[in-house]
Simulated scan of single mutants.
Amino acid sequence: MRADRPTVRALTGEDLAWVRTLFTERWGGVVSVSRGVAHDTTTLPGFVARLDGRRAGVATYRIAGRECELVTLDSVRKGAGVGTALIDAVAEAARVAGAVRLWLVTTNDNLPALRFYQRYGFDLVAVHHDAVARSRALKPAIPAIGHDGIPIRHELELELPLPSE
Protein backbone atom coordinates (compact mmCIF):
# COMPACT_ATOMS: atom_id res chain seq x y z
CA MET A 1 0.00 0.00 0.00
CA ARG A 2 1.38 3.40 -1.00
CA ALA A 3 1.53 6.11 1.62
CA ASP A 4 -0.33 9.27 0.66
CA ARG A 5 2.25 11.59 2.11
CA PRO A 6 5.84 11.19 3.15
CA THR A 7 6.70 11.02 6.82
CA VAL A 8 9.67 13.02 8.04
CA ARG A 9 11.98 12.39 10.96
CA ALA A 10 15.31 13.71 12.15
CA LEU A 11 18.41 12.42 10.40
CA THR A 12 20.28 9.94 12.61
CA GLY A 13 23.57 8.07 12.55
CA GLU A 14 21.71 5.06 11.14
CA ASP A 15 21.06 7.09 7.96
CA LEU A 16 24.66 8.14 7.31
CA ALA A 17 25.70 5.20 5.12
CA TRP A 18 22.64 5.78 2.94
CA VAL A 19 23.33 9.54 2.80
CA ARG A 20 26.98 8.96 1.85
CA THR A 21 25.97 6.61 -0.96
CA LEU A 22 23.21 8.90 -2.24
CA PHE A 23 25.34 12.06 -2.21
CA THR A 24 28.33 10.31 -3.75
CA GLU A 25 26.22 8.90 -6.59
CA ARG A 26 24.33 12.12 -7.27
CA TRP A 27 26.74 14.89 -6.28
CA GLY A 28 30.23 13.38 -6.39
CA GLY A 29 30.65 13.19 -2.61
CA VAL A 30 29.37 14.39 0.73
CA VAL A 31 30.93 17.85 0.51
CA SER A 32 28.58 20.62 -0.58
CA VAL A 33 29.92 24.08 -1.41
CA SER A 34 27.94 27.30 -1.18
CA ARG A 35 29.12 30.89 -1.12
CA GLY A 36 32.75 29.76 -0.86
CA VAL A 37 32.21 27.48 2.13
CA ALA A 38 32.62 23.70 1.98
CA HIS A 39 30.21 21.76 4.20
CA ASP A 40 30.64 18.13 5.19
CA THR A 41 26.98 17.18 4.89
CA THR A 42 27.43 14.12 7.12
CA THR A 43 28.05 16.42 10.10
CA LEU A 44 25.00 18.65 9.61
CA PRO A 45 21.57 18.26 11.18
CA GLY A 46 18.84 17.19 8.82
CA PHE A 47 15.71 15.26 8.09
CA VAL A 48 14.89 12.05 6.25
CA ALA A 49 11.61 11.51 4.42
CA ARG A 50 10.12 8.06 4.07
CA LEU A 51 7.52 6.70 1.69
CA ASP A 52 6.22 3.14 1.66
CA GLY A 53 8.60 2.27 4.48
CA ARG A 54 11.70 3.33 2.53
CA ARG A 55 13.93 6.37 2.61
CA ALA A 56 12.75 8.74 -0.08
CA GLY A 57 14.78 11.88 0.52
CA VAL A 58 17.06 13.88 2.76
CA ALA A 59 17.66 17.51 3.65
CA THR A 60 20.56 18.98 5.61
CA TYR A 61 20.84 22.47 7.00
CA ARG A 62 22.88 24.77 9.19
CA ILE A 63 21.73 27.61 11.40
CA ALA A 64 23.94 30.65 11.94
CA GLY A 65 22.43 33.42 14.00
CA ARG A 66 19.02 34.30 12.63
CA GLU A 67 19.57 32.57 9.29
CA CYS A 68 19.20 28.97 8.20
CA GLU A 69 20.88 27.63 5.10
CA LEU A 70 19.27 24.67 3.38
CA VAL A 71 22.54 23.00 2.42
CA THR A 72 21.15 19.94 0.63
CA LEU A 73 17.78 18.71 -0.55
CA ASP A 74 17.53 15.44 -2.38
CA SER A 75 14.46 13.40 -3.27
CA VAL A 76 14.60 9.94 -4.76
CA ARG A 77 10.82 9.98 -5.34
CA LYS A 78 10.07 12.97 -7.56
CA GLY A 79 6.52 14.29 -7.55
CA ALA A 80 5.53 12.55 -4.32
CA GLY A 81 5.78 15.56 -1.98
CA VAL A 82 9.14 14.53 -0.53
CA GLY A 83 10.95 17.81 -1.18
CA THR A 84 8.05 19.87 0.14
CA ALA A 85 7.82 17.78 3.32
CA LEU A 86 11.56 18.13 3.89
CA ILE A 87 11.56 21.91 3.41
CA ASP A 88 8.55 22.17 5.73
CA ALA A 89 10.57 20.33 8.40
CA VAL A 90 13.70 22.46 7.92
CA ALA A 91 11.64 25.68 7.96
CA GLU A 92 9.98 24.64 11.21
CA ALA A 93 13.31 23.74 12.82
CA ALA A 94 14.69 27.10 11.69
CA ARG A 95 11.70 29.01 13.12
CA VAL A 96 12.01 27.18 16.44
CA ALA A 97 15.71 28.14 16.54
CA GLY A 98 14.81 31.81 15.99
CA ALA A 99 15.81 32.11 12.33
CA VAL A 100 13.96 34.68 10.25
CA ARG A 101 15.42 33.67 6.87
CA LEU A 102 15.78 30.31 5.14
CA TRP A 103 18.16 30.47 2.20
CA LEU A 104 19.89 28.19 -0.27
CA VAL A 105 22.21 28.19 -3.23
CA THR A 106 21.74 26.27 -6.44
CA THR A 107 23.54 26.52 -9.75
CA ASN A 108 22.44 28.26 -12.93
CA ASP A 109 21.86 24.96 -14.76
CA ASN A 110 19.48 23.48 -12.18
CA LEU A 111 16.20 24.54 -13.77
CA PRO A 112 14.14 21.80 -12.06
CA ALA A 113 15.31 23.06 -8.65
CA LEU A 114 14.63 26.69 -9.56
CA ARG A 115 11.10 25.77 -10.61
CA PHE A 116 10.52 23.77 -7.42
CA TYR A 117 11.92 26.37 -5.01
CA GLN A 118 10.04 29.26 -6.61
CA ARG A 119 6.78 27.31 -6.55
CA TYR A 120 7.41 26.63 -2.87
CA GLY A 121 7.73 30.39 -2.24
CA PHE A 122 11.46 31.09 -2.38
CA ASP A 123 12.57 34.27 -4.12
CA LEU A 124 15.73 34.70 -6.20
CA VAL A 125 17.75 37.34 -4.33
CA ALA A 126 21.27 37.14 -5.78
CA VAL A 127 23.33 35.83 -8.65
CA HIS A 128 26.91 35.14 -7.67
CA HIS A 129 28.60 35.45 -11.05
CA ASP A 130 31.27 32.81 -11.81
CA ALA A 131 31.15 31.59 -8.18
CA VAL A 132 31.25 27.94 -9.25
CA ALA A 133 34.83 28.36 -10.47
CA ARG A 134 35.77 29.20 -6.87
CA SER A 135 33.66 26.32 -5.59
CA ARG A 136 35.53 23.87 -7.83
CA ALA A 137 38.72 24.76 -5.95
CA LEU A 138 37.02 23.30 -2.84
CA LYS A 139 35.21 20.49 -4.65
CA PRO A 140 36.86 19.50 -7.94
CA ALA A 141 34.09 16.96 -8.64
CA ILE A 142 31.69 19.73 -9.70
CA PRO A 143 31.19 19.09 -13.41
CA ALA A 144 31.64 21.75 -16.07
CA ILE A 145 28.35 20.89 -17.79
CA GLY A 146 25.07 20.31 -15.97
CA HIS A 147 21.38 19.83 -16.71
CA ASP A 148 20.40 20.02 -20.38
CA GLY A 149 24.00 20.68 -21.46
CA ILE A 150 24.13 24.03 -19.65
CA PRO A 151 27.60 25.11 -18.45
CA ILE A 152 27.66 25.34 -14.64
CA ARG A 153 29.06 28.78 -13.79
CA HIS A 154 26.97 30.76 -11.35
CA GLU A 155 25.48 30.30 -7.90
CA LEU A 156 21.90 31.48 -7.53
CA GLU A 157 20.79 32.43 -4.04
CA LEU A 158 17.15 32.06 -3.08
CA GLU A 159 15.48 32.92 0.20
CA LEU A 160 12.27 32.35 2.08
CA PRO A 161 11.39 34.76 4.87
CA LEU A 162 10.29 32.89 7.99
CA PRO A 163 7.40 34.49 9.84
CA SER A 164 7.84 34.79 13.57
CA GLU A 165 5.15 33.26 15.70
Rank of each mutant, 00 (worst) to 15 (best):
K139N: 10
V30S: 02
A38N: 08
V127E: 15
E69C: 14
V71D: 04
S32W: 02
A133F: 12
C68H: 11
H128M: 13
C68F: 07
L114P: 01
F47E: 00
T43P: 05
T84Y: 01
W27A: 09
V82G: 01
R115T: 06
W103G: 04
D74F: 03
S135D: 07
T72S: 09
G46A: 10
G57K: 02
G79E: 05
L111H: 12
A137K: 15
G57P: 02
R54E: 15
T72N: 15
G98T: 07
Q118T: 15
V37R: 13
T60H: 03
N108L: 06
E92Q: 14
T41N: 10
V76L: 08
F47G: 00
E69M: 13
A99D: 05
G53I: 10
A126K: 12
G98Y: 08
G36R: 11
R54S: 14
L138M: 13
I63L: 11
D109M: 13
L102R: 01
P45L: 05
I63Y: 06
P143G: 04
P112C: 11
T106P: 07
G121N: 07
A131L: 14
V127D: 13
A89R: 01
R95H: 10
L124M: 15
A64P: 01
F122G: 02
K139F: 08
V125W: 09
V127T: 15
L73A: 03
V30I: 04
D123L: 15
A94S: 13
R101P: 05
A85V: 07
W103A: 12
P140W: 03
T106G: 03
G28M: 05
V58W: 03
H129D: 11
A85D: 03
A133D: 12
R134S: 14
F47A: 00
R119D: 04
R55F: 04
L124C: 14
P143S: 09
R55V: 03
Y120A: 04
G81Q: 07
L73W: 02
L102I: 03
L104D: 09
S75Q: 02
V30L: 00
D109H: 13
Q118L: 12
T84L: 00
V33P: 07
A97S: 13
V132Q: 12
L70C: 00
D130I: 07
W103M: 13
R77W: 05
G36A: 09
L111G: 06
V76F: 00
T107A: 13
D74C: 12
R66I: 06
G83V: 02
R119T: 09
F122P: 03
R35I: 01
G65P: 11
E92V: 03
A91M: 02
G81H: 03
H39T: 05
L114D: 02
